[in-house]
Amino acid sequence: MQEKFHQPQMHADAQRRARDRVEWLLQQAGIGLNGSQPWDMQVHDEQLYSRILTQGTLGLGEAYMDGWWNCQRLDQFACRALRAELPRKVGFTWHDAGLVARALVSNLQSKARAGMVGERHYDLGNRLYECMLDSRMTYTCGYWREAADLEQAQEHKLDLVCRKLGLREGQRVLDIGCGWGSFAEFAARRYGVRVVGITISREQEELARQRCQGLPVEIRLQDYRDMRERFDHIVSLGMFEHVGWKNHRGYMQVVQRCLADDGLFLLHSIGVNRSGIRSDAWIDRHIFPNGNLPSVAQIGQAIEPDWVMEDWHNFGADYDRTLMAWHANFERRWGELAAHYDHRFYRMWRYYLLTCAGSFRARKNQLWQIVLSKGGVPGGYQAPR
């Protein structure tokens, strides 16, 4: 965890100007300072204002972790702030510039660096995710159409993926970024397929193997770039966000060489409305190091001209409900986790879940399921919903 932020005391007039600027910005989103609305910011340290103006979203998030401010409904705060484009209005900070420079100069998602997100996020402890997720530990967006709760939403999503691929008994399927084995187990049990799941997280590998014991499932600790076998179909749920803009094309080439000529590839990924090469500074430092959410244009460039895009399904609004359900589970079971994580982690994790829910509610982030084929499905592809 990062150490607490320390900042020299400002002169009273400079502090007042910073406060006035932040207050004016928040007013653009209908957010008040120390007000009575559930999305209002309750300030406990007057240095907060300059921290926001100099560090942007990184300063805002770390100040929350440090207890400098609170908000009754962080999800509503984030939704309003993002709809009003407040991060853009704050402006480009030195931290943002550093992220851009790093992304331009280095391949942040190279094979040598790929394990960082596994170690720092997915290996935080299986107990954390057991408490937060559904019983299958599915750490991707649920499909809430006709679902009453998180358990149903995740089962419906897994079944939707299987139906979109047209899985048949005996087929061999590759799951890139298999997590704790939820898709592999579901597809093997319900559809009788054989699955190879790959992950870069040691904790995921161990638990996924236990979960899929006795099924025709093989779980490997392996980078996607090392795959050279052929499969009837390929699926990737919530992993493309870690591939990086410099590797999109190479990723698609790996899938191309591993997919049977008449097979389908389903890509399930968070997406953004505007192309970029960096992640949010706070998310990059504390949640998903070296992440990079793709845009429509970036995915299009990566698949052209080798693929036929058979279906593009956006149900990003469902991620709001999924994240809120994860947050409810996390809060409800924090007592089981408190002995293993400190209070600053608690504030970090709830900030992560609730502000991400707000971003999907504001429609700044999307969730796409894209079905691709090599040469086009003869007669056309009929997309299940």
Score class of each variant (00 low, 15 high):
C258F: 05
G115V: 02
A101K: 06
A112N: 13
L99M: 09
P305T: 06
F345E: 11
A362D: 05
V22C: 14
S279E: 14
A357R: 01
T199I: 08
M309T: 11
C162Y: 00
R19V: 01
D226R: 05
R189D: 10
M1Q: 14
V254G: 03
M252D: 05
I219H: 02
Y129I: 06
S279Y: 11
M1C: 10
Q369M: 07
N273F: 03
L86Y: 10
L160G: 01
Q253I: 04
Q55T: 10
S359P: 00
L266T: 07
T54S: 13
T57R: 01
C71R: 07
Y346C: 10
P384V: 03
R385G: 08
I283H: 08
A153V: 01
E304A: 14
A338H: 12
D45Q: 14
E218G: 02
G238D: 00
Y143H: 14
A328E: 15
H44C: 13
H327P: 05
I52H: 00
L158R: 03
K89N: 10
G335I: 04
D123K: 06
H327V: 01
G263F: 04
Y64A: 13
R80M: 09
A362Q: 10
E130M: 11
N329D: 07
V117T: 12
G118R: 03
L259S: 07
H242V: 09
R16P: 00
